[in-house]
C-alpha cells in the first residue's frame, strides 16, 4: 500500500517535471516564432535591422513597418490564439466532448451573421466607426451562445452537455443558413468583404485592436486558470462533481460566460478562425496530460504559437499577397485532425 502511493507520487513528480519542460519549450517556441515573424514580410529587414529599429535607430520606413504593421499583428495573433484555445479547452471540459470548440456554441456563425446583416443593410462598412464591426461581432457571438445556453439549461439539473452540443449545432446551422440566404442578395463587393471576414483574415491589425482585445485576455485567462481545479472536477461529469461538493450549475455558468467572452472577443477582431479552439487543447493534452492546472497554460501557449505561425506563413507563402490566416490554420489543422481520427480508431 505504502509502496504504490510512493510510486504514484514519483510518477506524479515526473509528470510535473515534464510539464514544466514542455511549457518552457512552448514559451521558447513563441519567442522564436515572434522573432522570425518580425523578420517576415515584403520589405526585407535583417534581424540586425529589426534590433536597431526596436531600439529606435531604424529609418522612418523601418519604424513604420515594424511598429505599425508587424508588431500589432503579431501580438493580436498570439492573443487570439490564446483566447480561442483556452475557450476551446474550457468548452471541451464543460461539454465533456472532445470535439467541442467555440464554433460549436454558435459564436462564429452568430458573429458572421451579424456582420453580414450589417454589411447587407449598410452598404459601406468603411464609413462606420472602427470599433463598430468588432462590437457587432461580439454581440452576435454572445447572442448565439446565450440562445444555446438558454435552450440547454434545465432548472435543478444545470447544463446538460449533450443538449449544449446538439443545440449549438442546431443554432449554428440556423445562423449559417440565414447568412447564406442573405449573402445571395448582396452585391459582389460586399460579398467579398464578408467572405474574407468569414475566412478569418486578421484584418484589424493596428494597436487600437490590441488595446480592445487585451482586457478580455488579461482578465479572463487568469480567471479561468483560477478555476482550473473546478474544471478538473467538472470534467468528471455533473453527478460526480456534485458528489465532490461542487456547485455545478453555478460554476458551469461562470466558466461558460468566460469561454464565450474569450471566444467572441477574439472572433470579433480576427474574423472566424476555426480549428484553433479544437486542436490546441488536444495537442496540449497530449503534451502535458489532463490536469487543467498545467493543461490550461500549455493550451494557451500552443494556441498562441499555432496562430502566430499560421499568420507568419499566411504573410510569407504568397508574397506579396496575403492569404487569410484562418485558411492556413485549417490547412495545418485538417491533417492533424485526420491523424487524430485514425489514432483514436486504432
Amino acid at each position: 500500500m505504502k509502496e504504490t502511493s510512493m510510486k504514484m507520487s514519483l510518477a506524479e513528480q515526473q509528470r510535473r517535471h515534464r510539464s514544466i519542460i514542455v511549457i518552457s519549450f512552448l514559451f521558447i517556441g513563441i519567442i522564436v516564432a515572434f522573432l522570425i515573424s518580425m523578420n517576415t514580410g515584403v520589405i526585407r529587414m535583417s534581424p540586425l535591422d529589426v534590433l536597431k529599429t526596436l531600439f529606435g535607430f531604424g529609418t522612418t520606413q523601418q519604424h513604420l513597418v515594424l511598429f505599425d504593421f508587424r508588431l500589432p499583428r503579431i501580438i493580436i495573433s498570439i492573443l487570439i490564439g490564446m483566447g480561442l484555445a483556452v475557450s476551446g479547452a474550457v468548452l471541451q471540459a464543460l461539454t465533456r466532448n472532445a470535439l467541442a470548440d467555440p464554433g460549436i456554441i454558435g459564436i462564429n456563425s452568430g458573429a458572421g451573421m451579424v456582420i453580414l446583416l450589417f454589411v447587407a443593410f449598410y452598404a459601406t462598412p468603411a464609413a462606420a466607426p472602427v470599433y463598430l464591426l468588432p462590437i457587432l461581432a461580439w454581440a452576435g457571438g454572445g447572442i448565439a451562445a446565450l440562445l444555446v445556453f438558454i435552450i440547454s439549461y434545465r432548472k435543478h439539473k444545470g447544463l446538460s452537455s449533450n443538449r449544449l452540443v446538439l443545440n449549438g449545432v442546431a443554432i449554428s446551422s440556423g445562423f449559417s443558413a440565414v447568412t447564406i440566404l442573405v449573402s445571395l442578395r448582396i452585391n459582389p463587393e460586399q460579398y467579398q468583404f464578408v467572405s474574407t471576414w468569414i475566412a478569418g483574415s486578421i484584418w484589424s491589425k493596428d494597436w487600437n485592436y490590441v488595446i480592445a482585445l487585451l482586457p478580455f485576455i488579461v482578465i479572463l485567462l487568469p480567471f479561468v486558470y483560477y478555476k482550473s481545479q473546478t474544471i478538473n472536477v467538472l470534467n468528471l461529469g455533473p453527478p460526480m462533481a456534485t458528489g465532490l461538493g461542487a456547485a455545478v450549475a453555478k460554476q458551469q455558468i461562470w466558466l461558460l460566460a468566460a469561454a464565450v467572452g474569450l471566444a467572441s472577443s477574439c472572433v470579433a477582431v480576427s474574423g472566424s478562425i476555426g480549428f484553433v479552439g479544437l486542436i490546441a487543447p488536444h495537442l496540449a493534452r497530449r503534451l502535458v496530460g489532463q490536469r487543467y492546472q498545467t493543461l490550461l497554460p500549455a493550451t494557451a501557449l500552443v494556441g498562441g504559437l499555432l496562430v502566430l505561425v499560421a499568420d507568419t506563413l499566411a504573410r510569407w507563402i504568397l508574397q506579396p499577397a496575403e492569404i487569410p490566416t484562418g485558411i492556413v490554420v485549417a490547412v495545418i489543422g485538417a491533417p492533424y485532425f485526420l491523424y487524430l481520427m485514425f489514432r483514436t480508431k486504432g
Binding site: 520589405i43 504593421f69 462598412p125 499577397a321
Partner: peptide, 30 residues
C-alpha cells in the same frame, strides 16, 4: 488588396483609392 508592407515598399508619395471598402476597418489611418 494593397497590403501595407507592399505599399510601403514602393515608398509612394500619394495614394489614390476608389471604393470606400478599400479602407474599411481602420485601414485609412494606416
Amino acid at each position: 488588396d494593397l497590403p501595407f508592407e507592399a505599399v510601403t515598399s514602393f515608398t509612394p508619395d500619394l495614394l489614390i483609392l476608389g471604393a470606400n471598402s478599400t479602407v474599411e476597418g481602420g485601414k485609412y489611418e494606416q
